[in-house]
Write a protein that binds this DNA or RNA. Structure first.
Lengths: 149, 149
DNA sequence: CTACTTGCAAATTGTTTGCATGGAC
DNA sequence: GTCCATGCAAACAATTTGCAAGTAG
């Protein structure tokens, strides 16, 4: 499996070891379409390795993030919980509906453009952008309108 | 003082009361150019009202945010601490330099454009966008280049 | 066999809450 | 006088850490 080899070589390069826990946690994030917080990663991983500990999950998420294999995300205005997704999902941003809590993915080149313009203007180098939107999705907007009639 | 009257009427409208603590906390955020976390608001406010409690600061920041008099912000990738600034600063975003921790304000219409486009496309209504950038400012980039020579 | 990793439990940190007292209106 | 707000201390929740035992290379 290609992903496993690439994980191994990247870990090696960082002087780290390949462990079943790390393989498991990355594969969960690679294969899901959802956005998982540490607790949920733990819950899912524990089904497959019952004596896995939550501290290991946090440590592993930290190194996977450091190695740029996963992305940290926040949703809506409350940033008290971090969510993660595999970087293999490509460049996109998130809109959270405050009515139904649905998360809609937003694709746009404009965020990168802002970074390029600002770099050109100031000479700064970007390493990361954190963008999240909140509001009400079309069907929740409709619902609210019906209520206020 | 205009700000005080407007604060009072907005509090009244929400069935809330005007208190010295609330006036103090809002005035600190209105008058500073910095981005303050709750702890720092508390530190500054306590100098002027020595038996102010940090719980009051958190409660007040919560209602000022709810009333849209202040904005919550996060800087760089670590969102474990919330920062606040008065909304009277106008629409802008933030770039945090990981080298010198300087925060540079970014002005661009593109974020609003993303929201408008997405609204037009999907019918969603935006209430809020959270955007923060991180990287290295021009002088920190230069410094690093000199080191690697 | 050497260091990196893990599991476990305890600690930390930013923030929130329950409750009796105080203060705005 | 009525309720909302405050101060205080205790509670919380997400995350991190110290350490002894386990395990990858």
């Amino acid at each position: 499996m290609e992903g496993k080899n690439s994980l191994e070589s990247q870990l090696r390069a960082a002087g780290r070891r390949m462990t079943p826990q790390r393989i498991l946690i990355l594969s969960i994030l690679d294969e899901t379409g959802d956005h998982l917080d540490a607790e949920e990663v733990y819950r899912r991983a524990k089904k497959l390795n019952s004596n896995l500990n939550i501290a290991t999950v946090y440590r592993t998420l930290g190194i996977l993030k450091e190695m740029d294999l996963i992305e940290q995300r926040y949703f809506a205005r409350d940033h008290s919980i971090e969510y993660y997704e595999s970087v293999n999902k490509g460049e996109h941003y998130h809109f959270t509906c405050l009515g139904c809590r649905k998360i809609i993915e937003v694709e746009t080149p404009k965020i990168l453009q802002v970074q390029q313009e600002f770099s050109a203007l100031t000479g700064a180098k970007f390493t990361h952008a954190c963008v999240c939107f909140e509001g009400y999705c079309a069907s929740c907007v409709d619902e609210e309108e019906n209520l206020t009639l």
